[in-house]
């Protein structure tokens, strides 16, 4: 058994090669590579600040090993959009004030993205369930839920127009 191993994965579509020991989490490995948009919070799978999409499925990168991401696709918030071309979710979080201190926001948006990919018309309860593993200590969640509802509507309109 080797203690370190070369792991190749794709982050936001680009190939990334890392050499890492088995006990290194995906969160630590990717932040070390400069993907600091992934936030480190509780480091025990409670707060969701570190959420990324792994082959499209949201997971807590703090309790996912880097080795387990080998050959897989990781999407961070930067893979969804940027200030020139934001994702409808990013736009809606700005519009509603869904981000205050902003620390939970990347994880919130990643978890919300996974929800909208699967369910374009989520009820408020669906949104609450999808964000049940994301903690925000600023907003009280109202604006966050609103942002997801607005983004869902924007995406539906986009779909109808296209």
């Amino acid at each position: 058994m080797s203690s370190e191993k070369a792991v190749t994965l794709r982050v936001n579509g680009n190939e990334v090669n890392i050499i890492t020991p088995a006990h290194r989490t995906l969160l630590e490995a990717l932040r070390h590579e400069g993907f600091v948009e992934i936030k480190s919070g509780c480091e025990k799978g409670d707060c969701g600040a570190c959420a990324v999409l792994l082959d499209g499925v949201p997971v807590d990168s703090c309790i996912t090993l880097a080795w387990h991401a080998e050959g897989r696709d990781v999407t961070t918030i930067k893979g969804l959009g940027n200030s020139d071309s934001p994702d409808p979710l990013q736009k809606a979080f700005i519009e509603t004030g869904g981000a205050q201190c902003g620390y939970c926001t990347p994880g919130m948006i990643i978890a919300a993205k996974a929800l909208l990919n699967e369910n374009p018309e989520p009820s408020l309860d669906d949104i609450k369930k999808a964000l049940s593993g994301n903690l925000c200590r600023c907003t009280g969640y109202t604006k966050i839920f609103e942002a997801v509802q607005i983004a869902a509507e924007d995406l539906r309109k986009e779909g109808e127009a296209a």
Partner: peptide, 12 residues
């Protein structure tokens, strides 16, 4: 299962 931990934990 529906109220098991949080969404990301349920996936893993």
């Amino acid at each position: 299962s529906d109220i098991f931990a949080g969404a990301m934990v349920r996936n893993a």
